[in-house]
Simulated scan of single mutants.
Amino acid sequence: MGGRKDGRATALVLAGKRDGATDPLALEAGVTHKCLVPVAGQPMLIHVIDALAASDRIGEIRVAIEDPAVLEGLAQLRGLIATGRLVAVAARPNLVDSVLAAADGAAFPLLITTADNVLLTPPAVAEMLEGCKAQGADAAVAFTRRESVLAAHPEGQRKFYRFAEDSYSNCNTYWLKDRAALAAAETFRSGGQFVKHPLRIVGAFGLLNLIRFRFGLGTLAATFARFSRRFRMTIAPVILSDGAVAIDVDNARTRSVAADVLEQRAVMMQAAE
Rank of each mutant, 00 (worst) to 15 (best):
M1C: 06
G2M: 08
G3I: 06
T10R: 04
A11S: 02
A11M: 03
A21D: 07
T22P: 00
L25Q: 00
A29S: 11
A40R: 07
A40I: 02
V48T: 10
I49D: 08
A54G: 04
A54W: 03
I58L: 04
I65F: 05
A69F: 02
G84P: 09
A91M: 11
P93E: 14
N117E: 04
V118M: 07
P122D: 06
P123E: 13
A126E: 15
K133R: 14
A137N: 06
A139H: 02
A151L: 11
H153P: 03
H153E: 09
K159C: 01
D166S: 07
N170G: 11
C171N: 08
W175D: 08
K177L: 04
A185C: 12
T187D: 09
S190P: 00
G192N: 07
G192V: 08
V195F: 13
A204P: 05
N209F: 01
I211G: 05
F213I: 11
R214M: 08
L220N: 10
T223F: 10
A225Q: 14
R226A: 14
S228M: 13
R230T: 15
A236G: 03
I239N: 08
D242H: 08
A244M: 09
V249N: 02
T254P: 04
V257L: 09
A258K: 06
E263Y: 00
Q264M: 08
R265A: 11
A266Q: 14
M269P: 00
